[in-house]
Design a protein around this nucleic acid. Sequence first.
DNA 1: CTAGGGTTAG
Length: 628
Amino acid sequence: MNLPLQSLRTKTKLLSSPLQQIQPIKWNIQLRELSKPGQYQQAITLYRQMLRSGATPNAFTFPFILKSSAALSLPVSGAQIHCHVIKSGCQSEPFVQTALITMYCKCWSPDTAYKLFDESPKSWELTVCYNALISGYVQDSQFSNGLLLFREMRSRGVAFNAVTVLGLVPGCTVPTHLELGMSLHCSSLKCGLNSDLAVANCFLTMYVRCAAFELARKLFDEIPMKELITWNAMISGCAQNGLGTEVLDLYRDMELSGMQPDAVTFVGVLSSCANLGAQKVGIEVEEKIKRYGLKFNRFLKNALINMYARCGNLTRAQAIFDEMPERNLVSWTAIISGYGMHGHGEIAVELFDEMIKAGIQPDRTVFVSVLSACSHAGLTKKGIDYFDSMETNYGLKPGSEHYSCIVDLLGRAGRLQEAHKLIESMPMEPDGPVWGALLGACKIHKNVELAELAFTKVVNLEPTNIGYYVLLSNIYTMAGDLEGVMRIRVMMRERGLKKDPGYSYVEYKGTTHLFVAGDRKHPQIKNIYTMLAELEELVKEDSGLLKEERNDQAIAGVHSERLAIAFALLNSDDLGKDILVIKNLRICGDCHVFIKSVSKILDCKFVVRDATRFHHFKCGECSCKDYW
DNA sequence: CTAGGGTTAG
């Protein structure tokens, strides 16, 4: 009696599924294999095949496919899958719910995820749901919501674990949240979570990013079995905070400990080489990159371009840039700022235009590079045009960093009143660098009155930045206002500010030699001073330039760069060929006059790097367009 | 066959 019906069933089954894959379990098992890093796209393709074949996804299918969709951050396909979930009536299955919540969290909709969670408050696996939500909010830069959930979780008596901490702590990587992060660290220790290396790495990242280096170091030293990520967290954190020498030390320690660095390590090390101007180390790293087969890594290529440009080797930076098959915004920014720093503003703006033609959308950072390139090269009109185009053509609101570029640009061109007016018209509160740029321009154009105004503002904002005191003092000296110089000195003493000893360093034959003004620790110091005395004599005879020497030393101290130059000349084999890069944070007028003169007398080249750019000295001229 | 995590550039 049942026979006809049964045969009908068999027939339908065969018809609708010629490959006999109607059973979801087979698909599910394949999906499980594919929902792993690197294969998520294939998992999605497989899911589509599954639907086309007529198989119905079930409660085991959805967690896998939602995970893949979440990992690729595909909100559209995620929402589609959500529809399939409802269609197949799986929406109240616990694992499916959790997977849905996770998917929405990873697709930047933590609010949707929270609604799902809130509408169906079930008792299962609350920890997992909370973990997903907390990390979702934190990664969507809604740290306070993440924290709120964490507190709710605790007040409901839901247990938290390592994953909770890993979700929440990345929100504590700004100094304002450090204390909170530290209390989290304490609770984690009490719960015995410190044995989880990922948790330790996470807190380590928090400490270095908050510039709490003693705490970071302590934690780092306490980790007995350091993983690659532990080293990387420490190295990148220090690199991002400008602790270049610490990074190079860590890198050596890492190699000594036998741990193999990877691309992430090299990125941090190269960025520190760029900051320090340590080209020799940078070259070694490039060799290693080749040896490890990482030379096609784009992160590393950009880091190399930046490193060479900031070590003064523009040729090599350009070569790497040219070899790149695909350049992104970061590559263009690195090469543009490289040319800008070396005073080649024309090339920088050409490259910028070329980048726009190539269809790359500029961002605020690349505008900082191109604007400062214009300002260093005296391309006033061009710079103003770019500044105006930011908002009109690209919808980018200028920030105070762009305003300070334009103030610098107008200021160098002598348009001080315009620069002042621009500051007054800023939509946001002007910060230290903005007023500082005006102050610097006042020095170039000898405007004491405006300088005093700018100084009052900037010192109010950055009371401990000694550079600004030195700047105004130099302006007073130039104007012959010795009373003013005294006033500044008294002000500094009252505020407990000591003049920082200017320092310079030279990388010579792979070692960095540091010279602090007045320091006599260098092994060759006797010869250096003899050489320096000779040089100063020659320069005086040459043009009498040093007679104009102003009494800057009162505050700025003895010139450290002269020691560096004397050292280099003492050790140089071939003056004409050697290009020497000297790093000096603050270059003053006397420094310019002296180096120009030496380069003329001895017919040699010098490259000097200050905080923002390079000065190329040759035959008594300097590449920078400043009016010292 | 079932969910949640730490380190990359200008």
